[in-house]
Amino acid sequence: MKVRQDAWSHEDDLLLAETVLRHIREGSTQLNAFDEVGDALNRTSAACGFRWNAVVRDKYDEAIKLAKKHRKQRKRQLAQDSKPIVYKQYQPKVEAPSPMLEDSNREVVVPVEPFVKNERELTMEEVISFLRSIQGSGSKAGALELENNELNKKVQHLEESYSQLQVQYQGLEEDYQSIIKIMDRARRMTMLEDEPEDRQAAAFRMDKNGNLEKVAR
């Protein structure tokens, strides 16, 4: 009969925690874990259970959550493996023989592909990971779209600025041509003033284009 009454050591608590966590992961019960630890430490199952619930359990909250998560995944995998395997048989299309070459006594052999096992179903973790990857791709695409819109706005602004510069340049070109004409007329008037008196006696007039022309007397 198990009647051990000495205090629990650190090694005893560690053995209790490891055994309980292992039974949780494997889908067993904590009572089975207490029985196993009681046999190893020569203690009763009730004493092991009391020690676990009163002292040890609070130190392993995260480990217990991980062990339960592992147990769910293990059950899901076992359920998936226990499903009957369904095979698909590939039937290729066989063309009918030509009536001229048909032989009623000839045996036709249809090739059949090897059996193919269906792919396993995706786990919830794989689906979540896939959805997160899609969400990440969508965020990158959205950022690229915003950047593209900003670049389009800059290009449009540059095109408008270029059009305005073209209009200004055309105005300056017209002003420049007007100045050239005025300077040319002034030069011609200066040349007329410097000519001898007998030449100045000749009469001139300005046409509609601003050019001087000699008038016959």
Score class of each variant (00 low, 15 high):
31 L>R: 15
33 A>R: 07
34 F>K: 10
34 F>I: 13
37 V>D: 06
38 G>Y: 09
40 A>E: 15
40 A>W: 10
42 N>T: 15
43 R>H: 13
45 S>K: 15
46 A>Y: 09
46 A>Q: 14
46 A>T: 14
48 C>D: 09
49 G>T: 12
50 F>C: 15
51 R>K: 14
52 W>V: 15
53 N>S: 14
54 A>W: 03
54 A>V: 14
55 V>P: 05
56 V>N: 01
57 R>I: 09
58 D>H: 11
61 D>Y: 04
61 D>R: 13
61 D>S: 10
62 E>F: 07
63 A>F: 06
64 I>R: 10
65 K>P: 02
66 L>C: 06
67 A>C: 08
72 K>Q: 06
73 Q>D: 04
73 Q>T: 01
74 R>E: 02
76 R>S: 10
76 R>C: 09
76 R>T: 13
77 Q>T: 06
80 Q>V: 05
80 Q>K: 03
80 Q>D: 01
81 D>W: 04
81 D>L: 07
82 S>F: 00
86 V>D: 00
88 K>D: 03
89 Q>K: 11
89 Q>Y: 05
90 Y>P: 10
90 Y>K: 12
92 P>Y: 00
93 K>S: 06
93 K>N: 02
94 V>T: 06
94 V>R: 02
95 E>M: 07
99 P>V: 11
99 P>E: 00
100 M>R: 03
101 L>D: 01
102 E>D: 03
104 S>A: 11
106 R>F: 08
107 E>M: 08
109 V>P: 02
110 V>Y: 02
111 P>E: 03
111 P>V: 10
112 V>P: 10
113 E>T: 10
114 P>Y: 04
118 N>Y: 01
118 N>A: 13
119 E>D: 07
120 R>A: 13
121 E>C: 05
121 E>I: 09
121 E>P: 12
122 L>I: 09
123 T>D: 07
124 M>W: 01
126 E>R: 04
126 E>W: 00
127 V>F: 06
128 I>Q: 03
129 S>T: 09
129 S>H: 03
130 F>L: 13
130 F>W: 02
132 R>Q: 10
132 R>F: 02
133 S>W: 00
134 I>L: 12
135 Q>S: 14
137 S>Q: 05
137 S>H: 01
138 G>A: 11
138 G>Q: 11
139 S>A: 14
141 A>N: 02
141 A>L: 12
142 G>F: 04
143 A>Y: 00
143 A>L: 08
144 L>C: 10
144 L>M: 07
148 N>Q: 05
